[in-house]
Simulated scan of single mutants.
Amino acid sequence: MPHSAWVSEAIRKIEADFNRSADTHLVPLDLPGYPDIRFYFKDESSHPTGSLKHRLARSLFLYALCNGWINEKSTVIEASSGSTAISEAYFARLLGLPFVAVIPASTSRMKIAEIEFYGGRCHLVAQGSKIYAESHRIAREAGGHYMDQFTYAERATDWRANNNIAESIFKQMAAEEHPVPAWIVSSGGTGGTIATLGRYVAYRRHATRVLCADPENSVFFDYFRSVLAGQPDASLTLGVGSRIEGIGRPRVERSFLPTCIDAMAKVPDALSFAAMRYLAARLGKRVGGSTGTNFVGVLYLAGRMKARGEAGSIVSLLCDSGERYRTTYYDDAWYAAQGIAIADADALIARAAAGEAIFAGAGAGVETAGF
């Protein structure tokens, strides 16, 4: 079936929006405790919708349009912990389409307000594990299209070129002291970004390795370990959701491809939040919890490289702005209510950032696999 004039115009609008957007910055971070290692963060918070998920939403809309799944009468539905829904609401408004975000009731009020700012409607679900079934139900009853980021993220993203996040990183690193990173670190939400990074590194035959940092309430790490053991168990589930919004899943998502990853680290939430707070102070801007999870993975690798006498660069992602979490991650009362001893975790991260081997062995509760 040939595409309609409306679909062609919709694709043009998305491409024009992309052309108006500059690339995101690659921000260096100086850690004197690691004199032979250079650190960089790709600042994805500078996208129009404030997060890494802007890239994913653009790709998902183009994928759905080119597949003939969306037309001018479509209602678009997405299951999300917030950031993807914000970005998809942006693109739905660009195309004049109604948008429904199916999100956990625990999603930050700031994220809900941003979804609504772009014209989206929020459908809150008490149990995070129910967002998938609710999304299917709403799409069926509305005669709409369920984007299903957790299935299509890895296949909708252009991983060979087209200025994807991996290609952008390597272009921006070209004039640095160590232009080919020893490691790239990213957390896993849908799995789409980590798959893009791993595929691009393999395609360009770089010596770079890819580490996926996973929060404590997520099955991705255990699934990765089962794959390494030759007994992959895609049936793994958890009864609770991640406290690190945007990453970590209670089930194995179809877009999470462990074979694209070299190694994984499972990070306790307290350390993710402490690393987030440390980075916010060092960078002079608030960052989200997923960036903190990434930074713990970075510190683990830096300690490992230092102990082995290795020099090189480590690149990670600043996934979103911490302004979305003013009343949670940046509120001491929230930590008290959650029972998180943040002061102890703050001290551990400060020591690790200063060059101490805090994460050696089973130190500080960080688990690793793939090394």
Rank of each mutant, 00 (worst) to 15 (best):
S8Q: 14
A10N: 06
A10I: 10
I11Y: 10
R12A: 13
K13W: 05
I14K: 05
A22L: 14
D23Y: 13
L29P: 07
P32L: 04
G33E: 09
P35G: 13
S45V: 07
A57P: 00
A57T: 04
L60H: 00
Y63Q: 06
N67W: 09
I86D: 03
F99C: 03
A101H: 06
S108G: 07
E114K: 14
G128C: 12
I131N: 00
H136S: 08
Y146P: 02
M147S: 04
R160P: 09
A161V: 06
M173H: 04
A174F: 05
E176L: 10
P179R: 11
S186K: 00
T196N: 15
V201Y: 02
R204C: 02
R205Y: 03
T208F: 08
V210H: 02
E216I: 12
F221Q: 11
D222N: 15
S226T: 13
L228N: 04
S242K: 08
G248D: 03
V252G: 02
S255A: 15
T259C: 09
A265Y: 02
A265C: 15
F273Q: 00
A274V: 07
R282I: 07
R282H: 14
G284E: 02
R286D: 02
S290N: 04
T291D: 02
N294R: 04
V296A: 06
A307S: 14
A307R: 15
G312S: 11
L318P: 05
R324A: 13
R324C: 12
R324M: 12
Y329R: 00
A337C: 08
Q338M: 15
I340Q: 11
L348F: 06
G355C: 11
G355Y: 08
F359M: 03
F359A: 06
G363R: 11
A369W: 07
F371V: 05
